[in-house]
């Protein structure tokens, strides 16, 4: 509060000072209140995840007997038994399925989208603007629209229930966002760099791979993180297109939901394992994550 504005007419001045004193009091009080409110909100956001972690680290009998918050007075409850039991089951396989679905998808989306984005940004061709508007339109097409048709298609091709089928579906639905993001970044690359390369007689492929792609790294990193998390965390596509052999963790855990209450000792550690890698990525690369998100939504 800036109350001490000197060059004011007298009545106004008095009012200012009065407001200043009250204002300062309100400020001091207010900032205390704000601090408390913010701590409470922070707790509100932290507690659910903390609950999952603690529950995953306690014996089922203990979980049934008392709330997870009693762990603060009885830390001896903690055990990693649930985790070791879980890893001894087929859950490890679904972990690797998640990896085998997520990594190729991310690589493919980046490669294919970067090529398309390059064409949209730096090559003049008929219908370019219309085509790009279609990509913008496809940004929010609901996945549901493709479930039945692609299931039929996969049935015909014999890739229903396989990892490649899941990957291709993810790649296709990842492309509109990826092309949009990268194209918007690529158009900002200084034209002089491309001009110089074209003058030197470099092919378009060479310009793309040696000039534009390396310069696009920040955007590609953002896209990579985003795409990785999106695929890693997907459940719907896996639910339809993966079978029990190729299922990722989300689907494996979903099939355990029916017995919720009796198998928290499987669900809680499973859910926690499934979020560990996203959380690590998130904390390590949150800058890129935020940038990708902004670029994707502030259109």
């Amino acid at each position: 509060m800036t109350a001490t504005t000197v060059d004011r007419p007298a009545p106004r001045h008095a009012g200012e000072i009065k407001r200043g004193v009250v204002g300062r009091l309100v400020d001091a009080l207010g900032s205390g209140v704000v601090q408390v409110v913010m701590v409470l909100i922070g707790l509100f956001w932290l507690v659910p995840t903390l609950g999952l972690l603690v529950v995953s680290l306690r014996d089922e009998a203990v979980n049934n007997a008392e709330g997870w918050w009693t762990v603060f007075t009885k830390p001896a409850q903690l055990t990693i038994e649930n985790y070791s039991n879980l890893l001894a089951t087929g859950f490890t396989a679904s972990f690797w399925n998640t990896v085998f679905i997520t990594v190729p998808t991310t690589v493919l989306v980046i490669g294919i989208a970067a090529m398309a984005a390059y064409a949209f940004a730096w090559i003049d061709f008929p219908g370019r603007d219309t085509l790009f508007l279609i990509v913008v339109g496809l940004l929010i097409v609901p996945i549901q629209i493709a479930l039945i048709p692609i299931a039929a298609l996969y049935g015909g091709l014999g890739i229903f229930g396989t990892i490649p089928g899941v990957v291709l579906f993810h790649v296709a639905f990842g492309l509109p966002f990826a092309i949009f993001l990268l194209r918007n970044f690529f158009v900002g690359i200084p034209a002089s760099l491309l001009e110089a390369a074209r003058m030197d007689g470099a092919t378009e492929w060479k310009i793309f791979s040696t000039v534009v792609f390396p310069l696009g790294k920040p955007a590609i990193a953002s896209l990579g993180i985003f795409q990785f998390l999106w695929v890693w965390n997907d459940m719907l596509i896996a639910l339809v297109f993966a079978n029990t052999e190729s299922q990722p963790m989300t689907k494996a855990l979903q099939s355990e939901m029916r017995q919720f209450g009796t198998n928290v000792d499987i669900l809680a550690p499973g859910a926690f394992i499934s979020v560990i890698i996203p959380l690590i990525l998130f904390f390590a690369f949150q800058r890129y994550f935020v940038q990708g998100m902004m670029a994707g939504s502030v259109k």
Partner: peptide, 10 residues
């Protein structure tokens, strides 16, 4: 912001 990284399933 952290829940954004967590799957909706989790």
């Amino acid at each position: 912001f952290m829940p954004m990284a967590v799957s909706l399933m989790a």
